[in-house]
C-alpha cells in the first residue's frame, strides 16, 4: 500500500435548480478523501445525497443540477478545471464506477467482450486482438470459469451476480486509481452479495485502488469499510474509522440508524426508531438538518446549523452536543 491520497474533495456543493425558483441542496459542503488501498464508505438513506456526491466526482451531473462550489482533486488534478474532452479521458481510466443495476449499466446489444474491449481500445490504444486477449484475462480475473466463451455472450445470458462481475471487469480494465461503487450489491441476493464484495475487496488490494463504497447497508459497511462517512441532508454528519463508528457512534442520527437495524445475532424486543422522515432537499429546516427528528435537539439546534467539528485527528461530528460551550 502506498497510502497516497487518491481523491480529495473539498467544500463540494451540488445544487438542483427547480422550476419554481427553489433550490435543492442535494450536496452541501462535503469534504472527503480516499487513499490508495483504502475503502471509504459513504452511508445514508435515500435522499441523503450520497449518489449525487459520487456523480459529482465523475462530473455526471445534468441540468437542472450544477456543481456550484468546491474542488475535486484526483491524483492532484482538479477535475472541475478540466474540459469535457479531458474529463472523458479521466472517466473509465483514472476513475471507474460500478452501479447498482448491472442490467441497465451494460449495453444489451453488445457482447460482454465488446464492452470491455471498447474501454481498452479507447483508453489504452490496444489493437483488437490485444484488447480481446486482455478482456478474456480480465473475465478470468473476476471469476468467470469459461472466459473464452463468456467474452462472446450478451448481458442477458448472464445472471445478476455474473453481470456485476462483468461490470467489475470493465471498471478495472484500465487499472483505475479510484473505484466508485454505488450500491453495487443492493440488487443481489445475500449469498451473491458476499461473493461480489469479496471480489471487489480483492481487486482493490491487488490493484492498490482507493474504493469509495456508497451504500445504505450498515452491515456491508461494518464488514468491508476502513473509514465511514455518514451523510444526512446533503452533508457529512459523522466521520470515523469503522470500529469507532459502530462501537461508539456520536451523532444522534448515526445512533438512531444503528438502533433501528434488526440483527441476526441480537435479540431485540422492539427496534429503535427515528421519528419522522428525511426532509426533502429543497425544504431543509433552518438550523441543524436533523433537528426536527433529533431526540436531543436543543434551542440552538433550530437556529443555526452546526459545523463538522474534529473530535480527534480521525473523528469528526456535526452536532452541538459535542461543542465546548
Amino acid at each position: 500500500m502506498t497510502n497516497e491520497t487518491v481523491l480529495d474533495v473539498k467544500d463540494l456543493k451540488t445544487y438542483f435548480y427547480l422550476d419554481d425558483n427553489q433550490v435543492a441542496k442535494a450536496v452541501d459542503d462535503v469534504d472527503l478523501t480516499v487513499r490508495a488501498g483504502e475503502t471509504v464508505a459513504l452511508v445514508g438513506e435515500s435522499g441523503s445525497g450520497k449518489s449525487i456526491t459520487s456523480l459529482s466526482i465523475m462530473q455526471l451531473i445534468n441540468k437542472p443540477g450544477k456543481i456550484v462550489n468546491g474542488e475535486i482533486s484526483l491524483l492532484g488534478r482538479n477535475l472541475l478545471e478540466l474540459t469535457d474532452k479531458q474529463m472523458t479521458k479521466v472517466r473509465g481510466n483514472d476513475v471507474a464506477m460500478i452501479f447498482q443495476e448491472p442490467m441497465t449499466a451494460l449495453n444489451p446489444v453488445y457482447t460482454v467482450g465488446n464492452q470491455i474491449m471498447e474501454v481498452l481500445r479507447k483508453h489504452k490504444n490496444m489493437s483488437k486482438k490485444q484488447a480481446r486477449q486482455r478482456a478474456i484475462d480480465l473475465l478470468k480475473l473476476v471469476g468467470f470459469p469459461r472466459a473464452e466463451e463468456t467474452v462472446n455472450e450478451y448481458p442477458h445470458q448472464l445472471s445478476g451476480g455474473m453481470r456485476q462481475r462483468a461490470m467489475i471487469a470493465i471498471a478495472i480494465s484500465c487499472d483505475p486509481k479510484l473505484l466508485i461503487a454505488d450500491e453495487p450489491t443492493t440488487a443481489l441476493d445475500v449469498t451473491i452479495q458476499a461473493q461480489i464484495l469479496d471480489l471487489m475487496s480483492e481487486m482493490k488490494d491487488r490493484l492498490d485502488m482507493g474504493l469509495l463504497l456508497i451504500t445504505h447497508d450498515l452491515g456491508v459497511v461494518a464488514e468491508y469499510a476502513d473509514r465511514v462517512l455518514v451523510m444526512y441532508g446533503g452533508q457529512i454528519v459523522e466521520q470515523a474509522p469503522k470500529r469507532h463508528l459502530f462501537k461508539d457512534p456520536k451523532h444522534p442520527y448515526t445512533e438512531g440508524l444503528l438502533e433501528s437495524l434488526p440483527s441476526v445475532h441480537k435479540e431485540e424486543e422492539r427496534l429503535g426508531t427515528i421519528k419522522g422522515t428525511v426532509p426533502p432537499a429543497h425544504k431543509f429546516p433552518k438550523g441543524c438538518r436533523f433537528s426536527s427528528r433529533c431526540p436531543h435537539a436543543m434551542e440552538k439546534c433550530f437556529e443555526t446549523n452546526p459545523e463538522l467539528m474534529d473530535l480527534d485527528h480521525e473523528r469528526a461530528v456535526r452536532c452541538y452536543l459535542y461543542t465546548e460551550d
Binding site: V190, T191, Q193, A194, Q195, L197, D198, D217, L218, G219, V220, V221, A222, E223, Y224, K242, R243, F246, K247, L258, L261, S263, V264, H265
Partner: peptide, 15 residues
Amino acid sequence: SIPDTDVDRERETVH
C-alpha cells in the same frame, strides 16, 4: 453471508 454490524465478532464465513 449476512454482513454483520458487530465489528468485533469473529466469524467463519461459508461463502
